[in-house]
Design a protein around this nucleic acid. Structure first.
Lengths: 196, 196
DNA sequence: AAAAATGAAATGGTCATTCAAAAAATTGAA
DNA sequence: TTCAATTTTTTGAATGACCATTTCATTTTT
């Protein structure tokens, strides 16, 4: 069978611990010891598996990006019309699996660190480009070119803003509600009485 | 005339240096020595004037919040109709004075740190409450209660999202353009053909 | 002369990373 | 299987940097 198993298990455990620890303490303040302790390991083992704190953070963000990508593709598969697919992008962003306080919190930390860590900046750019291109593709079929970019920027900024607020939410999030609201906002922005 | 002068000058210099340094290096990573050096002072004098790094950060955010409040009130003074006043809130957020890469950058750092620093969390909450109440007041005159909150959250999230992106902008920002786009988004969200 | 302001150097603490050695798992020969 | 040899995994204890804050002697202002 496949060779290494322990390695994969530890990677997963440590990444999960990182998400949790970063949420609890903040990206810049959290220590290796805290993360390790959440995973029931020692700080030294993090370096054994990931090489450095920075590489651990990078791996963690890659993992979250993969979750987002997966959610998008899954939901995309069943969508038929352009509007369906637009809603798929919105739904993915607010899916039950992703739209949690913990994860939104880590994303906010990520956004604020990215400008200062080249490797994170690259990840950030890749992710944003993917979302942008999905939006462009679907909105292109629904709106005139002139209005398309306005609506795209509005929707993308809206999603980021909602995540930003979610990171500080006092009460548990309601993904289903967030999806409904996102659709409502999209519907308002799309109402076409061709005045533009 | 007024008593202390040097003190006020130093406060201003150090806060300006803090904005600049936080933008360049990141809130969590920037050191007292770096900030001091930007102001042509020593780290010790920061403690002399502010007491601690954390208090300096707090004073800096208070300063930025004051700028935002001022921009809002100034622009508000000349507005007559509810729509005018709604646009005033948007314009304030993207005014030439505020909507700079440097300041957006500091705001993003602030958002990400606030959850972990009680004193910053309080400031954040105060600021958000003020913006929210302005929006509620103006949108209340323009929309049905049911739709008002949807549009308010959409606009507020939109503004945050735009700032978030501005913090990472490669090219210089264009405040006038940002104001025009914000108005366009608001106009789209407000088009009332009373279907909701 | 007194008070305020300044900065060089000392202090004390934190933390990522390294390293040597222990512990656990794996292998393979008997 | 059994058991020693070998490899992989794990950790406690240095190591070496870095940095906020304090101290204190000196300079500047009032």
């Amino acid at each position: 069978m496949g060779r290494t198993r322990i390695r994969d298990i530890r990677h997963r455990e440590l990444i999960d611990a990182t998400v949790s620890a970063v949420h609890q303490r903040g990206y810049a303040v959290v220590t290796m010891a805290e993360i390790a302790s959440l995973a029931g390991a020692s700080a030294a083992s993090i370096n054994y598996y990931f090489g450095s704190k920075e590489k651990l953070m990078e791996a963690t963000m890659r993992h979250l990006m993969t979750l987002l990508k997966q959610a998008m593709l899954e939901r995309y598969a069943t969508a038929q019309t352009p509007l369906d697919r637009l809603n798929a992008v919105l739904d993915a962003n607010f899916s039950d699996r992703l739209y949690t306080i913990e994860q939104c919190s880590v994303w906010v930390q990520f956004w604020s660190s990215a400008p200062y860590v080249p490797t994170l900046a690259r990840l950030h750019q890749i992710n944003r480009a993917r979302v942008t291109s999905h939006f462009r593709a679907e909105l292109g079929a629904l709106l005139s070119p002139a209005r398309r970019e306005t609506v795209r920027v509005a929707l993308q900024s809206y999603m980021d803003g909602v995540w930003l607020e979610a990171a500080q939410a006092a009460a548990p999030l309601q993904p289903a509600r967030a999806r409904a609201e996102a659709r409502e906002v999209a519907a308002l922005l799309l109402r076409s009485n061709s005045q533009g």
